[in-house]
């Protein structure tokens, strides 16, 4: 389908393991993951609880470091980066959305969206402009002043998505983004993620345990007992997007 690409893949995991605890209490959450994700993919990671999918997500999102194995992000080895370097990588290349939305309470939507820009040191007007644009792109142009308590779950998650994309990341990590949402808003959010993937070329990596949600992805990876159990192309979506 795609012509062969010489540039390094976006994400390349080789023999990645993660062990929590020491000695008898040690628990191996990931037992050797090999995975390659290319630019522009929409990947769903599925698996029962305890399968290691959240651990994998944290490692992919550079929130944690692997015990052994290598992780290259755009060709850069990141497995041994220190806390601050990983923070900077997250700041400049990665976006996150979470099941619990994780917006700052008592803070207006626009201020929540401006938050990552604040750490980038943008000026007040630049921040405001970009945040307003991001809010508009998730369909919340009229909700700048609303605080999370004044918005529905779907709206809050859209604010969270705006916050994640306002920095124009390469990759968007979504950790059970629809876990707290009803069917209608789930569809809204997933369509928004699909559009970001198709229109803006943002790579989306999604963790979920719902088949209906995973159905939006182009590629579905099942994780079980710390290993990749299956890695399939979602043909229905490939046809849809081509």
């Amino acid at each position: 389908m795609n012509p062969p690409d010489d540039s390094p893949p976006l994400i390349e995991l080789v023999n990645l393991t993660k062990t929590y605890g020491h000695g008898d209490a040690a628990f191996q959450a990931l037992r050797g993951i090999n995975l390659t994700i290319r630019d522009g993919e929409f990947v769903a990671i599925m698996g029962p609880s305890g399968s290691g999918k959240s651990t994998l997500m944290n490692l992919l999102g550079c929130l944690d470091t692997p015990t052994t194995g290598s992780y290259r992000y755009q060709g850069i080895p990141v497995e041994n980066l220190d806390n601050d370097r990983r923070s900077l990588l997250r700041r400049h290349a990665l976006g996150f959305i979470f099941q619990g939305f994780n917006l700052l309470a008592r803070t207006s939507a626009i201020e929540n969206v401006e938050l990552p820009l604040l750490y980038r040191g943008l000026t007040r007007s630049e921040r405001h402009e970009k945040a307003a644009a991001a809010l508009a792109s998730v369909g919340l142009a009229d909700k700048h002043r609303n605080t999370p308590a004044e918005m529905s779950g779907g709206q809050q998650q859209r604010v969270a998505i705006a916050r994640a994309i306002v920095t124009e990341p390469d990759t968007l990590f979504a950790d059970e983004p629809t876990g707290n949402l009803d069917t209608a808003t789930t569809r809204e959010v997933m369509e928004l993620l699909t559009r970001l993937n198709l229109d803006h070329g943002i790579t989306v990596i999604l963790v979920t345990h719902e088949d209906e949600v995973a159905a939006y992805a182009k590629r579905v990876i099942h994780v079980r007992d710390g290993l990749i159990a299956s890695d399939k192309i979602n043909h229905r979506n490939l046809i849809l997007s081509s």
Partner: peptide
């Protein structure tokens, strides 16, 4: 704590 987690996740360094 949760708020600090959010800040760290979106790229704040420990120093910040």
């Amino acid at each position: 704590t949760r708020e600090i987690g959010i800040r760290l996740a979106i790229g704040a360094t420990a120093r910040e």
